[in-house]
Nucleic acid binder design. Structure first.
Lengths: 203, 203
DNA sequence: GTCTATATATCGATAGAC
DNA sequence: GTCTATCGATATATAGAC
């Protein structure tokens, strides 16, 4: 049955994403993944050809490539474009926080998996840089270094928020996605020296 | 000889920090650490009582606790205080990027080591929050949520810059520490809606 | 397609010689 | 204090039965 195969494959990927995001790739065993998925230990090799290939399959399944890169034509209006990018990234983060953790884990290491993550992220990074550069060209954004500004803006959008690490000092109830979008939009536009309306792009 | 013991112990810690920061804790073996340190495999257990305890000893050795928490009295001038904190964190980052990577790795996972990292970071986080709150109270910083603002500011200060992950899109030569301090200071003060002089705190 | 059983390697840790 | 040798546990991966 094809749907049964699909089920097990998908269950394995979902289990792997969950465990990798919590324990890291090296901190997670194939046995744990199979147990979490309710599948036999041999099926990771059978379906994916090993633990490493499973990680690649996980990104192929999860990464919201088309969502992030669509509407690139809006780049002519850099303020609108950066607001839209912030909205899309923050909203996706709320729906799939595990993938964001995987990205952050690899961003702090030099593993053989970095290239897999970069393959998906480079086009998005490039789009963000283009928006910033166009904004500077139009005189609405003000900054010295494009590299440094890109790193700061991207870090601000992506930095962990609900991951438990900061729980000891966090006091307020978790903000809604719309509140997060509004706050980050104001932060980023403020950091970019934008003098206009810092209201977030409407959904 | 006490200096000899100190040498080996220190060499092991330096090797562990190097390898953990590149490969992660779980991705690094005791054997690799000892080889890197030019020491025998048995000495990790002998000196530290195992790999886990070694991680704790590493933070005890490395974390710049007093550097970050000194001069807390300057909190009365929140602009000056946040500028000083930015300077200290960025400068320390430039001197010891490996420790920052360790922190980022754990911030993206839920490992038994998180508590060790938090023990050292919570006082610094609390200081940063106090500065932001005092700034809002004095009317020089403008933001809605203290939690969200703290996370954004801290993320902006700490986000990786020279870690290789972003190399595919980075074009400019690496900025000097003073340039990084100046840029991040402007970003953060801009994000906080500060209307005064965004010049960084002088060294 | 899914299972058990196992091959093979490597892990962290330590006993005991020196 | 440092070494070799090795223990026991556990890792990934796969051969072969069903």
């Amino acid at each position: 049955m094809e749907s049964a195969e699909h089920d097990v494959k998908m269950r394995l990927l979902v289990a792997a994403k969950k465990l990798f995001s919590r324990q890291g790739f090296d901190g997670t065993t194939v046995r744990q993944i199979c147990e979490e998925a309710g599948a036999n230990v041999a099926l990771v090799s059978y379906y994916f050809g090993g633990k490493d290939n499973m990680y690649r399959a996980l990104f192929d399944m999860s990464f919201p490539e088309s969502l992030l890169l669509e509407g690139e034509e809006a780049k002519q209006d850099p303020v609108k474009a950066i607001k839209l990018l912030i909205r899309k990234v923050i909203a996706y983060q709320a729906n799939d926080p595990e993938l964001v953790r995987l990205i952050q884990q690899e961003s702090a290491q030099l593993t053989p998996r970095v290239a897999i993550v970069q393959k998906y992220l480079v086009p998005v990074w490039q789009m963000a840089r283009d928006i910033l550069e166009e904004g500077r060209h139009q005189g609405v954004f003000h900054f010295r270094s494009l590299d440094n500004t890109f790193l700061y803006v991207w870090g601000g959008i992506l930095f962990p928020r609900d991951f438990g690490f900061f729980n000891p000092v966090i006091r307020e109830p978790l903000p809604s996605t719309e509140e997060k979008i509004a706050d980050v939009t104001r932060f980023v536009l403020g950091a970019l020296g934008y003098n206009g309306d810092p209201e977030p792009e409407t959904p």
